[in-house]
Write a protein that binds this DNA or RNA. Structure first.
Lengths: 166, 166
DNA sequence: CGCACAGTTTACGTGAACGTAAAGGTCTCA
DNA sequence: TGAGACCTTTACGTTCACGTAAACTGTGCG
């Protein structure tokens, strides 16, 4: 049988997923997760006693985030690393793990985060605009196609076929 | 000097661009154009006497189309080839180069085009939706960042810094 | 305990999309 | 008639993002 997780209690604490499960939840492979870890993008929050990677739901969320930045915005993994590292710094500040941080440093990190945020939003807007243009072109084409279908149907008395619906 | 184009008349007929110019207009490289040609994606409409590639504005438009499908929708060059080939078939029909085409064949090609069009539109819509979600998340983050800036500013009496504007 | 499956590291392989260099041909101008 | 910028083909190189295989370890069940 497939080995169950080292469940201390039947279902307590943050649910730990093995690597194959985490990969499946994000629609990717175990190799990909190990590769991301190698690049410093995604570290499992925990390990089993034997050293096997155990992922939390937050880890999976981070993984999904990576995939979105990659597939949707077209960043390479290096750029994604830059983005994530900055957010991690910010998270560290919030957790006040770093009590001895100066307000200047705090402000600097916030500035960086804001700049990245601005760049991302600009990029998203740009993509949205381009997609809208493309969509309009596609719709125009669809209209032309439909017109040509009508032409064909009226031109010949043939019965209308199965047709992909707009 | 840079050799001028074999201008029969100062500026008549479809403007022919050399490969470097066409590449520049699409923001890519000459290698890329030759590669696309190798894959059957983009053939220059004309050649110089000596055999050099000459691209029309339509060729450049097609090139830009390829880049959009690649960068915006994430297709690989093989899939883009499928899409373009179908559209080319349709264009051939319009030009009635193929006079001996049966209405059945005509309808079949139109059906294929419509199906591709539907798939593309669905994909664009999906991307638009995902981008919108991402944008909302980014905006939420931006708001949190701004709140933290205020925290910092009121917390200390320091002068406000240069700040990235939202 | 031992089986079977999942996980581990290490390392080489792969496909896509070009980059780049070599060796030569072409086109226009001076 | 060069000079020089641009072009050609051929072919090997490169980067990214993993895939895949090998050899080994760990985990849970019967």
């Amino acid at each position: 049988m497939t080995p169950t997780l080292p469940s201390v209690a039947p279902n307590s604490g943050p649910v730990s997923l093995r690597i194959s499960e985490a990969a499946a939840q994000a629609g990717t492979s175990t190799r990909t997760l190990r590769y991301y870890e190698e690049l410093g993008l995604l570290r499992p929050s925990r390990h089993s006693v034997g050293g096997a990677r155990r992922y939390t739901e937050d880890d999976v969320a981070r993984l999904r985030r990576i995939r979105e930045l990659q597939e949707l915005l077209g960043f390479d993994l290096g750029e994604i690393g830059d983005i994530l590292r900055n957010e991690d710094q910010l998270a560290e500040l919030r957790n006040e793990v770093q009590a001895g941080v100066t307000p200047e440093r705090h402000r600097q990190i916030l500035d960086e985060a804001m700049e990245i945020n601005n760049r991302l939003r600009a990029l998203v807007r740009a993509k949205q605009d381009r997609l809208q243009v493309m969509m309009q072109e596609l719709e125009a084409k669809a209209r032309r196609y439909r017109a040509r279908f009508k032409e064909l149907d009226t031109g010949s008395g043939a019965a209308s076929r199965s047709r992909a619906s707009g």
